[in-house]
Simulated scan of single mutants.
Amino acid sequence: MKLWEFVNELKSPAYCWVDLTHELSPATPHWYGFGDLTTEVIYDFSPDCIFHSDKYVIPAGQFGTHVDAPGHFVQGARTLDQMTLKEMVYPLVVVDKSAACAANADYELTIADLQEWEQEHGPIPEGAFVAFRSDWSKRADMNNYDENNQPHYPGWKLDALHWLVEERRIGAIGHETADTDAPGANVNFAGEVYILETDRLQVELMTNLDALPPTGAVIFVTFPKVKNGVGFPARVFAVYPKE
């Protein structure tokens, strides 16, 4: 009964619920190396059919707002069907570097940024999901190509990820961009390889992080139990109490 009461409390006007997921459609933002999602109506309401159904063809599991399992970059590592239920919920920390990213499209989040955040909000708790807010999801052109057709968008510094894992023992990370690493840094996915090598999941192409407080929220990362899957579109949301 206490759990049921807790659910009713969470659904009361005392709490805010924020969807951190892009809709899944042909217009969904995605990594520049993939093609577009396509849809097709395969059944529709008619005198001979009492239901509607669509076919969705996604070019890769890592499409739109998605979760990456360790096996995405680490051969033999865990896949989505091996992730535990407890890895679908975390205390949420939001690190806002949107102003710095607006000034520099190639901005990389640093240890100093994380330490500055802690000076204001306290230590990042063990097991937390740390989200890098860049406000990049608000952009119409998230790939931000230059004249040489090179994309430019923010990412994590590798040593910042090391610090979060080794010093704060976080549970997972997430960001609004399509990569862990800034493509302008030319680091060959070093940050993404590292975070997945530590047997943690990550969420990419998040949105609405600007609607969350820096601390106090809980994030839910839900995704299908795809056998041997290393990435798949996810429904991600957060809940926090109104002050």
Rank of each mutant, 00 (worst) to 15 (best):
I219T: 04
R78Q: 12
E5P: 04
Y240P: 04
S46C: 11
K2H: 06
P183V: 08
D68N: 14
E167Q: 14
Y32P: 01
F45I: 06
S98L: 02
A105K: 13
N144G: 08
G61Y: 07
A112K: 12
V230N: 08
F73T: 09
A99G: 00
N186F: 11
V41N: 01
A102E: 14
I170R: 02
D44L: 00
E192W: 07
E120Y: 10
Y32M: 05
D48V: 12
E5A: 09
L24M: 11
D44Y: 07
P241C: 02
Y32V: 14
V95Q: 10
D81E: 10
R133S: 04
G127L: 01
D199L: 10
A99S: 06
N144D: 14
W163I: 01
M83T: 13
Y107F: 12
F63Q: 06
H52M: 02
D146A: 09
L20C: 09
Q62N: 15
A172P: 11
F232W: 15
E108G: 01
A178D: 07
K227D: 09
W156N: 01
F132C: 05
K138V: 02
D199C: 08
D146T: 03
N144S: 14
W156D: 00
H72L: 15
Y194C: 02
L37E: 09
V74M: 07
N104L: 03
K227Y: 13
D44I: 00
L205D: 05
E116P: 00
K86N: 08
N8P: 02
K55G: 00
D54S: 08
A128E: 12
Y194L: 13
P125T: 07
R169N: 13
T222S: 09
D96R: 05
H175R: 02
F45E: 02
G171R: 01
D141G: 11
Q115Y: 02
D19I: 10
W156A: 03
I195M: 13
P70R: 13
R78E: 14
E40F: 02
R78M: 13
W4F: 11
T207K: 12
V41K: 03
D146H: 09
V130E: 05
M142Q: 15
G122H: 05
L114I: 02
